[in-house]
Amino acid sequence: MSTIDAQADTLPLGGPSLPQERRLVTELPGPRSAEILARKASAVPAGVGHTVPVAAVAAGGGVVVDADGNSLIDLGSGIAVTTVGSAHPKVAAAIAAQAAQFTHTCFMISPYESYVEVAEALNRLTPGDFAKKSALFNSGAEAVENAIKIARKHTGRQAVVAFDHGYHGRTNLTMALTAKAMPYKSGFGPFAPEVYRAQASYPFRDGLSGAEAAARTILQLEKQIGADNLAAVIIEPIQGEGGFIVPADGYLPAIVEWCRANGVVFIADEVQTGFGRTGAMFASEIFGIEPDLITTAKGIAGGMPLAAVTGRAEIMDASHSGGLGGTYGGNPVACAAALAAIDAYETEGLLERA
């Protein structure tokens, strides 16, 4: 019998049944968490760090319970993932039902309806009143990489612009897009080529209006790269890694307008800001912009690994057959979780409550 099997009967149930309270019964870490963290140090590479010195055994609503019975307020939401709460009843039930049906076929081999339903939901929910299509992947970084692939294929150009303070992932291409050296980039290069960086709007630091900041950005793009060489501009509508940076009013619409005029694909990276994290379903709505492509992950599936690229149908269709996909992309269990999570956003008033 495994350790997990032996402990199963003694572990607390997660989900909304957990008392929503802060409760400390040991020092942190307690003896059981300390034991697990010692095993982690022995078995897991040092590069896989952790923030809180506890080992989680249950979570629900706004709390996490550790292996010693301490109940901690969950301010991280699994890095902006469990937006509907850990083990939300609808999500948990959908996962169990789908797992009993089938756990995997690979959508590129045998398609299934739940993938299509998630794509339809994303096409409906994302900003923009135009024909859209969606492709599903495993992680935010994978979605970003595929958005860049799609933009390059559509435009026939190679250059991509990301912004100061931006964060887009930990894979080779997304490390090139990410601005922050430590802990994401140091020692891991060389990085993917044809990635350039520009200054975005940072009104707290630069004091510029949206129009002034956009003029500065556009001057950089035209002088240092050239619009004819540029496939895509990718930006987080609200940056979340180099500080929570809200651009000045008018900045993003001006950049979108310039992209439209020059045939550049505007990509909104809403991996962190999507699905209610800003009080709107997507942060792009706050600024009145309609991205050509939008990347999502994190809050999309209530804790299951899922990500997506959604965008204008004519751009999304640029790739040849077989050019997009992946073995686990749009896994059926994750799709079932996403449909349940989206139902919770829409029927439980989560945006209004945020």
Rank of each mutant, 00 (worst) to 15 (best):
V63L: 13
V64S: 10
V64L: 09
V65Q: 14
D66C: 05
D66R: 12
A67Y: 14
D68T: 15
D68V: 05
I73Q: 14
G76C: 02
G78I: 03
I79T: 12
V81T: 07
V84K: 06
A87V: 13
H88W: 02
H88A: 04
P89W: 07
V91Q: 12
A92C: 12
A94S: 05
I95N: 09
A96D: 01
A97N: 10
A97L: 14
Q98M: 12
A99Q: 04
A100L: 12
A100S: 08
F102T: 09
H104P: 09
T105M: 02
F107A: 06
M108P: 02
P111N: 03
P111I: 06
Y112L: 04
S114P: 11
Y115T: 13
V118A: 09
L122E: 09
N123S: 04
D129A: 04
A135R: 00
A135Y: 07
E142A: 01
A143M: 07
A143Y: 02
E145T: 01
E145C: 05
I148Y: 00
K149V: 02
R152Q: 09
K153T: 15
T155R: 12
T155G: 05
G156F: 11
R157L: 10
R157E: 03
A159R: 10
A159S: 12
V160W: 00
V161A: 12
V161L: 09
F163L: 04
D164F: 02
H165V: 03
